[in-house]
């Protein structure tokens, strides 16, 4: 099964699900998610040939959105290459379903930094078809929970959508700043240690050698004295 086909099936399934949801909960949960495949969807996977990761993950509507909230749907691209990163694409619609142009869509990642926080990724303004996208290259591999939130639509409260990004390509990882000559520094003490040892041996030789010479000299003389 090709990757495209699988994605298509998944997309259709999700569309079906959202339709059902919309029917059942009309007016109660207007911030539902509609899927739209951004251009990047057509990007081929990285040539490394890793198994195609599921580009689309479970998306869910915001739990508690206002009745007149804008409709937002979010999609994360499945593949990326540094330094560009993954495309996070959202499409925004007004509460009655028309594409909203000129809305500000802000993208966050849910992180755990001394508590759960929403880290600002970037924001973009939606075009005439209600599409807004940003490029994100995460700092670490693994799954990232992404939130898209729209503001600036007339007579609509902010709406949001969530998705998960499975990142395999990451930004340059943190590396400690170590001066290049530190390896040389680490070798120096051994050389110095040898010199110190040599000095101690020399002092010991000067003291003990002299003492031995003097004591022996005295003995030899005594022996000589006896012989004489």
């Amino acid at each position: 099964m090709t990757r495209g086909l699988r994605v298509l099936i998944a997309v259709l399934a999700l569309v079906a699900a959202t339709v059902v949801l919309q029917l059942d909960l009309r007016g109660l949960l207007p911030g539902q998610v509609r899927l739209e495949a951004p251009n990047t969807m057509l990007m081929s996977p990285p040539s490394s040939g890793q198994g195609a990761p599921g580009g689309v993950s479970a998306q869910r509507p915001a739990a508690a959105a206002a009745p007149n909230a804008a409709r937002v749907q979010l999609r994360t691209s499945a593949a990326a290459s540094a330094p560009d990163g993954y495309v996070l694409a959202a499409s925004v619609a007004t509460p009655d379903g028309r594409p909203a142009a000129g809305a500000t869509v802000t993208f966050y990642e849910v992180v755990d930094l001394l508590g759960s926080r929403e880290m600002l990724i970037d924001s973009a303004t939606s075009d005439g078809r209600g599409n807004a996208s940003v490029v994100y290259l995460p700092a670490r591999a693994g799954s990232h929970e992404i939130v898209a939130r729209s503001t600036g639509i007339a007579k609509a409260a902010s709406g949001e959508a969530r998705s998960t990004l499975e990142a395999t390509v990451t930004a340059k990882a943190y590396a400690p700043e170590t001066p290049s000559i530190s390896a040389f520094y680490n070798a120096v003490p051994y050389g110095v240690g040898l010199v110190v040892l040599a000095v101690w041996l020399l002092i010991a030789f000067a003291l003990l050698g002299t003492a031995r010479g003097v004591v022996r000299g005295a003995r030899r003389e005594e022996e000589k004295g006896v012989i004489a």
Partner: peptide
Amino acid sequence: SLGWRGRPAQERALARGVGIMAVL
């Protein structure tokens, strides 16, 4: 004084020790 008598062997030993220390 380690039994110092001023013997040549003693003088040699002393000169060597003092020489090393003066240089060191």
